[in-house]
Simulated assay, not measured.
Amino acid sequence: MRTAVLPLLSLLAACAGASGQGPATPPPTAEGSCRNEGLDRFIGQTASAAIGADMLRASGARTLRWSAPGMAMTMDFRPDRLTVSYDGKMVITTARCG
């Protein structure tokens, strides 16, 4: 049993990193930030690829993330990302940057 635990502990230590801190340099920031202004007009519309493209253009975001009902999502903030939530009938309920 002891021999099976040691390799697992070394893997966990490797994942934690030598200093226990994040990277030495922050990740690059995307050019141009997403803007929330004007996104309310999409609330109530049916989610589709065409609507998503329109929302990207309207917000200035570089990335679109769809959020389905009950879907787990990361909470990291990205200034270049638009997150759009929809309900079980594919109706857009929220649209926000980050």
Results as ranks from 00 to 15, higher is better:
Ala30Leu: 14
Arg35Trp: 01
Leu9Val: 14
Gln21Ile: 12
Glu37Pro: 09
Ala30Val: 04
Ala13Gly: 05
Ala53Tyr: 01
Leu11Phe: 05
Arg2Lys: 09
Thr74Ile: 03
Ala16Pro: 00
Arg2Asp: 00
Gly98Ala: 05
Gly44Phe: 01
Gly17Lys: 05
Ala68Ser: 03
Gln45Arg: 11
Glu37His: 10
Ala50Ile: 04
Val91Ala: 06
Met71Trp: 03
Ala61Met: 10
Gly52Pro: 02
Ala58Glu: 15
Ser10Trp: 15
Thr3Ser: 10
Ser85Tyr: 06
Leu9Glu: 06
Thr3Phe: 05
Ala16Gln: 10
Leu39Tyr: 05
Arg41Val: 15
Ala50Glu: 15
Phe77Thr: 08
Arg78Gln: 04
Thr63Val: 15
Pro27Val: 01
Met75Trp: 11
Leu64Ala: 07
Pro26Cys: 14
Ser48Asn: 02
Arg35Gly: 04
Leu56Pro: 02
Gly22Pro: 05
Ala95Pro: 00
Thr3Val: 09
Gly88Asp: 09
Cys15Pro: 03
Thr74Arg: 09
Gly70Ala: 13
Leu12Ala: 12
Cys34Asn: 00
Leu64Gly: 04
Gly44Tyr: 00
Ser59Asn: 04
Leu6Tyr: 08
Ser48Leu: 07
Thr83Met: 12
Thr46Lys: 10
Ala50Trp: 05
Ala13Glu: 03
Asp87Thr: 04
Arg35His: 13
Ala53Asn: 10
Gln21Asp: 14
Leu39Val: 01
Thr94Asp: 14
Pro23Met: 11
Phe42Ser: 00
